[in-house]
């Protein structure tokens, strides 16, 4: 492991953990601007976390150890996921341990633990949220996998850094299949991060919520971890998107420390644009009824498969 790779790796994990709430804050800020509201500060998510960390935790009387362990597991999973997604550099030693398929598996692990924890206390909302989360998940997961599959077929590897490197290193070419998968990925990202047409992150309306319903019983530090993990998940998804569709600019062995140094502001710019686009998309769409959510996700899944077919037809 070269020092550069180790630095990149460390930077990725710490950077992701620290920057994730800011990214969430940025999306909220953009959304508020677009809605003609006065925007909360970029720091608002951090303040929320600090507030939660200064409170006494209350556990439901019948909460099991699984309930207490889940926030740590979910958070740790998101951290490991952040470690293997090339956001700033592609020289990631940890990504040998887990490739793109394993990344999908990691995200699934987090989802399953979150859902199990939601079912643990045995309240109506928790179980409802768990059911809906799994409903969204079982369609979103294969869709994401298919998106990665197309990228893997293009670059003949399933390792995420290598995919990003191959796609960035090739002579600029138009890949029609990536157009399909980009749309599919966008739909999956919206659904998986409890964003607008599927779930509304801003409300606590019982009938519509998914993610909020699952973490209702958490408080204080557990809730802080869950919120943080959710922010990390959004950050991770954005970085997966960059790695697949705008892979240029990530530092690697060839570009050395300077490349890595340049990659940081570049990533910030990418994130800023993506956050603004996400906010715009959310402004423009209305919440779907829960029963329409499967249709939305099925569309994502079928588009990803279509992308695969188009790849086989046009690009081989």
């Amino acid at each position: 492991m070269t020092p550069l790779a180790a630095t990149t790796q460390l930077l990725e994990i710490v950077g992701a953990a620290l920057a994730a709430p800011a990214f969430l804050g940025w999306v909220n800020q953009c959304r508020a601007w677009l809605q003609n509201r006065r925007a909360p500060s970029l720091m608002q998510p951090y303040r929320g976390l600090r507030k939660l960390l200064n409170k006494d935790a209350i556990l439901a009387t019948n909460a099991s150890p699984l309930f207490r362990a889940a926030p740590y597991v979910v958070f740790a999973t998101m951290l490991v996921a952040a470690a293997i997604i090339p956001s700033m550099g592609t020289g990631l030693p940890m990504s040998t341990a887990a490739d793109g398929i394993a990344l999908v598996g990691l995200l699934a692990t987090a989802r399953v633990f979150l859902s199990l924890a939601a079912m643990d206390v045995g309240t109506a909302f928790g179980t409802l949220g768990a059911r809906r989360e799994m409903m969204v998940g079982f369609l979103a997961e294969p869709a994401l996998l298919m998106v990665l599959f197309v990228a893997a077929m293009l670059s003949r590897t399933t390792s995420l850094p290598l995919i990003a490197e191959t796609l960035a290193g090739q002579a600029p070419a138009l890949y029609p299949s990536l157009a399909f998968t980009a749309v599919a990925f966008l739909l999956v990202m919206l659904a998986e991060n409890a964003r607008l047409p599927i779930d509304n992150p801003a409300t606590h309306l019982e009938l519509t919520m998914i993610h909020e319903a699952m973490i209702l019983e958490y408080s204080a530090r557990h809730l802080a971890l869950m919120e943080w993990a959710a922010a990390l998940k959004l950050f991770n998804y954005a970085c997966i998107g960059f790695a697949l569709f705008v892979p240029w600019g990530a530092g690697n062995e060839a570009s050395g420390p300077i490349g890595l140094l340049l990659a940081v502001p570049l990533l910030a710019i990418k994130l800023a644009i993506a956050g603004a686009a996400l906010a715009l998309l959310e402004i423009l769409s209305a919440k779907l009824r829960v029963f329409r959510a499967p249709e939305f996700l099925a569309t994502a899944f079928l588009l990803a498969v279509l992308g695969l077919l188009v790849h086989l037809l046009l690009e081989t």
Binding site: L53, N54, D56, L59, T61, N62, A63, T123, S219, A220
Partner: peptide, 13 residues
């Protein structure tokens, strides 16, 4: 985090 953990009835909104 230096706070305590208490047990209480489930909140359930």
């Amino acid at each position: 985090y230096h706070r305590t953990v208490r047990r209480g009835p489930a909140w359930d909104c």
